[in-house]
Design a binder for these strands. Structure first.
Lengths: 203, 203
DNA sequence: CCCGTGACGAGACGATACGTCTCGTCCTTT
DNA sequence: AAAGGACGAGACGTATCGTCTCGTCACGGG
């Protein structure tokens, strides 16, 4: 406990000296390979080789394969996470806009593969699950909830409507359909989900 | 192409000669180990050792680790898959009964671990996903749909209500909450889901 | 009823990928 | 200018994979 200087140096490298070149090369390589061979056959060694990087450089900055893929994902989704929803005054239309975009993302093969890798990892790594929830899921849910709150204030939802429930009822069906691949996720489908939820929660 | 007798003998062993003892021991061992170390650290070698079985005996009858866990799962859920729902005349009550049972299953640690293993595997194995969908998901959805149809005939749902949509809107939110561990799945939650969906789809 | 086919338990085997480590080089901070 | 440390490269021991090869024994067709 006393003198952990050695250990700290070993465990927490200096971020200021981190090579941005290597970092990008690694995430690039991971993204490419993810598309080529899928998550389960994605290996750290292949990422290192493709990125022309020592394996240690990966392990120095990322604790696991999942963490690397996490960065691939956040770069794909960009700054969009937690972005507030449009507010045109028409609650249904705004929700449809967002959910349609989600549907389109799910239909994009690259995004699909990455998101599945992700979902799988969330299942057997609870720590990773927490990170994903905090940094991606929660912000998005909050953004939707904000828009719902504004709609509620405008009298488009019952004053006592449970907004957390509403969020889950909007996302759940879309997610469920994608997860189990029961049917394609069309705009028509998400539109109907929105309509039904709003109908169920209106004043 | 011509003479594949050798290959056939090798590839398709005689099911009549299959050892029931070995089969049970393997599924038992897999279930135990799944509970002890989790799916990602579950190995074929450990299963074979615990079951006192040659590895080849596992590979002879199951193509993958996922397939073994599939059998663990179907044995846990028992014959319940595809069972018709109760029909007391009160659609909301019947749906709540079933969804509460689902909620309780999700809360059982053993079931939780197995189901997560499952969900993860469904993500990176499309073939496996098909098997799961056909043999577990579809029958359950159909059972719910049947009950909804009967409720629709009784005038409790709009005549033009989309029953496939309804099924997904019932299961989706529960599944979503469990999947992302956003909040505990209480009876109150599933009750509200049922109420909201029925309200959204009533005549 | 008995022979032969083939499933069984056990484990050796080569192949992969893991995560750690050790170099020598070169960049960056002080 | 010096030093510390991140870098690329790859060797290393370990773990697990899926296949294979034994010798044994039980089942089922003749």
């Amino acid at each position: 406990m006393a003198d952990n200087t050695d250990e700290r140096n070993r465990r927490t490298p200096d971020p200021r000296r981190r090579s941005q070149r290597a970092r990008n090369a690694i995430v690039d390589a991971a993204e490419e390979l993810l598309g080529e061979v899928g998550y389960s056959r994605l290996t750290m060694e292949a990422i290192a080789a493709r990125a022309r990087v020592g394996k240690q450089t990966i392990y120095r900055w990322w604790p696991s394969k999942a963490a690397v893929v996490f960065d691939v994902f956040t770069r794909l989704t960009g700054a969009e996470a937690g972005q507030p929803l449009p507010d045109t005054g028409d609650l249904a239309a705004d929700l449809k806009t967002v959910l349609r975009a989600t549907a389109d993302e799910f239909s994009d093969p690259a995004m699909d593969r990455t998101t599945r890798a992700f979902t799988a990892e969330v299942q057997h790594d609870e720590e990773f699950a927490r990170a994903v929830t905090e940094q991606l899921v929660r912000p998005n849910c909050e953004a939707v909830k904000d828009r719902l709150r504004s709609g509620q204030a405008a009298g488009q939802l019952a004053p006592d409507a449970d907004l957390d429930l509403a969020v889950e009822m909007l996302n759940g069906p879309v997610n469920h359909r994608w997860l189990l691949r029961t049917a394609p996720i069309t705009h028509e489908f998400v539109d109907r989900v929105v309509d039904t939820v709003l109908r169920g929660l209106r004043p």
